[in-house]
Design a protein around this nucleic acid. Structure first.
Lengths: 228, 228
DNA sequence: GATATCGAGTCATCAGATGAGTTGGCTGCG
DNA sequence: CGCAGCCAACTCATCTGATGACTCGATATC
């Protein structure tokens, strides 16, 4: 086991053991080095890992703190790696999205306030009227995000967000806005809204899952590499 | 933006841009430092982050390589942070488990070979006969893992595994093996197996989701801190 | 009492040195 | 020629020391 892993586990245990609660400050680097018996370089590497992942928070000039450990925040850190998955691996994530977004749509159907339904409907109008790829993509995000938020579990919203964001790097809408892809996508969104408006969770689940499945299919027909 | 983040993004872009494909080797540290215009310390911090997360692989004496970028592997890295979530945050993850394990059970009901059903049934027998907490926990893991594997999506299996592992640190079975918790758990497992054996996906989903929900409830009544 | 300044404490970053593992080629023997 | 063993170059691992930058509370000043 490398020295850095020793340091990493040491830091993690200080949190998991309850020695340091969310928001509390770690001892200074020098003290930690002595305690864990590692050099500053190794300690800092471990600290960076946990900092990058959102588990701890390093404040320059002030100290190192345990983060709030909010699940939604921690999960957001996953995108650091998920964003690097190649297309073929990405497709395996779609089963998760299908199930999770289906569930979120059902919750939204049960809980969404009337204002949200109006908002979703308005977003559909905008998407249908739009022919700018970037704008449509942004609206699409907002649409799905709103449904997740209405579902009421920020952690689930965060996880779906991570998986959705990876897909954004691929452009499934080609330049022709009249393409069947866009039309089908618009219809999918409309079906989800209608199910939610009818307060029909089962229908909302089916509509959302089906929508994700179609996206999955389009992506699977796309072999060109991503851009960034 | 810190220098380390510069390095991190530089490395990530080398992968996401397709410059380096899975399995390929990065230039030596010195070259990377020059290219990204960062010091060796900062570069190494960035490398460690990606290495710890399973995106790249550092082989002492040989070089640094892009990993296979298998989604299941990458997702396994999530446990590094998920294992640190406090109990209250952990409960938010149960909605995900409920939905995902319900789906996996449905898939298993549709696809599981006869041998697996026998195996699940045997595991139930063992669990019911066992009164050792540690052994029961291991059997429980094996039971749920087997269902996920049968469902056929390693990525989903990996994700469920990450979320399940976090729960393992809490002991919901108290020392009394005749406690209602154990009996209810045993019945839950049996119900899942029976639904899978009947090739009834909907029933399997309900049984699995209900089983997870019960675990969630038990955990929610448990406020004492974890041990490790 | 409000504000400006200062200094101790802390992290950020770099450079250099030494140690350790891997790999491929070279050598010499059979 | 084939192979085993050795060796040197290359690469990462880790530590140390130095300097810079930021934060924040204490102190001095008005």
């Amino acid at each position: 086991m490398t020295v850095m892993v020793t340091a990493l586990n040491g830091l993690r245990q200080m949190i998991s053991s309850g020695e340091l609660r969310p928001g509390q400050r770690f001892p200074p680097e020098a003290d930690l080095c002595a305690r864990l018996d590692v050099s500053r370089s190794s300690l800092r590497e471990a600290v960076r890992v946990l900092d990058t992942l959102g588990v701890i928070e390093v404040r320059h000039g002030s100290g190192t703190y345990v983060s709030r450990l909010d699940p939604a925040d921690v999960i957001r850190g996953f995108s650091l790696t998920v964003d690097l998955l190649p297309l073929d691996g990405l497709l395996q994530l779609f089963e998760i999205r299908r199930v999770l977004e289906g569930n979120a749509a059902a919750q939204a159907a049960a809980r969404a306030p009337e204002e949200l339904i109006d908002r979703l409907s308005a977003l559909c109008d905008e998407m249908e009227a739009s022919d700018d790829v970037a704008a449509m993509s942004a609206l699409d995000d907002e649409f799905h995000e709103a449904i997740c938020v209405a579902a009421g579990n920020p952690t689930v919203t965060s996880l779906i967000g991570v998986f959705r964001s990876r897909g954004r790097h691929y452009k499934i809408f080609d330049s022709d806005p009249s393409a069947p892809v866009k039309r089908t996508s618009d219809e999918g969104h409309r079906a989800i809204v209608e199910a939610i408006a009818r307060r029909d969770p089962a229908a909302a689940t089916a509509a959302a899952a089906s929508h994700v499945a179609r996206t999955e299919f389009w992506l699977s027909t796309l072999q060109p590499a991503p851009d960034n």
